[in-house]
Design a protein around this nucleic acid. Structure first.
Lengths: 175, 175
DNA sequence: TATCGTATGTTATAAAGTAACAGTCAAGTT
DNA sequence: AACTTGACTGTTACTTTATAACATACGATA
């Protein structure tokens, strides 16, 4: 697992911004996040059933954005159903409950690194290595809210995706 | 044309923010924007060919987000090709050259209201009336750039989409 | 007028997403 | 225990969105 995100770090971003772009042993993130998801489910009376849990694990293990059909393929290989709704329903559950994000631009999904924090993250999509990283973006959310309010629009959700080059690919001269 | 965007205005947003949500005679916007597109094409040595031009006109006339196949249907009805690539190529040209925007969340396209301004707009998508409005959002772009820079990420493009309720739908108690 | 590049058109197919209904199962009800 | 209910999983069948690959047209220019 995880072949695509082993890229060298070149700068020290704030907090965990850009984690997916950096070399790291992400077994540290998987276990903790599954445990956190269990907690959340218990707190909120949600059912993190086997398919849902496994779908989340798959997203965490890959540590990148996966298409619904990629997730489906893995689920089917493990004895779950192999029809699209199986994957879409599990992924929709995860997204609705803040355990995963949908990347609109890629028609793909990735595990949320801060489940339950009610954060409004922004995702960065590297066009060279195709990796995707989530970063906190409260100022962005605030700016979006400001612009929307000026237009009389009540924001209920946002999609904020930046496309470009991650630090590793820039360092490698992908520019 | 334009059945879907005749909703009552309830507040006076800054600039033209939320124009699509307000009652207006948009013939005023269409002609000028086509002229502007012609200028841009001339300035930059681009060819605003008949299909491309007509695709832009269709987006302007509808004044809402249209799926590629909706545009295709209209193009085909006017004697252009009726196969998907005909629409996708024209729309891609318009998007690449700043004359239209792709709304990732809706898999749809809409005419740009400020072609050539090199603005980084944000779009607001009303879940009740399905209309979509573009609004300038420099502070959002700045915030995105800030968060990205902190992560060592070089932004080349952004997708900023707000989902929620427009002022008209809120006033109608759609909440 | 040959040819070169750009644009348009077509065939065919891939990729993404959903509606509708059937079967399963745990939890509560009688 | 038998029944009912509601949430979840699974399936069939289909729609919508998108692209690769190749064929044709057409203007500019050498």
């Amino acid at each position: 697992m995880n072949g695509s995100t082993r890229v060298e770090e070149t700068a020290q971003p704030a907090a965990d911004a850009g984690l997916a772009f950096r070399r790291h042993d992400h077994r540290h993130c998987c276990g903790g996040l599954i445990a956190r998801a269990d907690e959340l489910a218990t707190e909120r009376g949600l059912k993190l059933t086997p398919v849902r849990r496994r779908a989340l694990e798959i997203l965490l293990e890959e540590h990148r954005a996966l298409g619904a059909y990629e997730v489906l393929e893995r689920l089917a290989g493990e004895g779950f159903g192999n029809k699209p709704p199986v994957a879409y329903r599990a992924l929709d559950f995860l997204v609705e409950n803040g355990m995963a994000h949908r990347i609109a631009r890629l028609n793909a999904f990735m595990a949320c690194m801060h489940p339950g924090d009610d954060h409004t993250p922004m995702v960065m999509i590297c066009r060279a290595c195709r990796s995707v990283a989530e970063t906190p973006a409260e100022p962005v959310a605030a700016a979006v809210a400001g612009a929307a309010t000026a237009a009389g629009f009540a924001v209920e959700g946002t999609v904020v995706e930046a496309l470009g080059l991650c630090s590793a690919c820039r360092a490698r001269g992908e520019g």
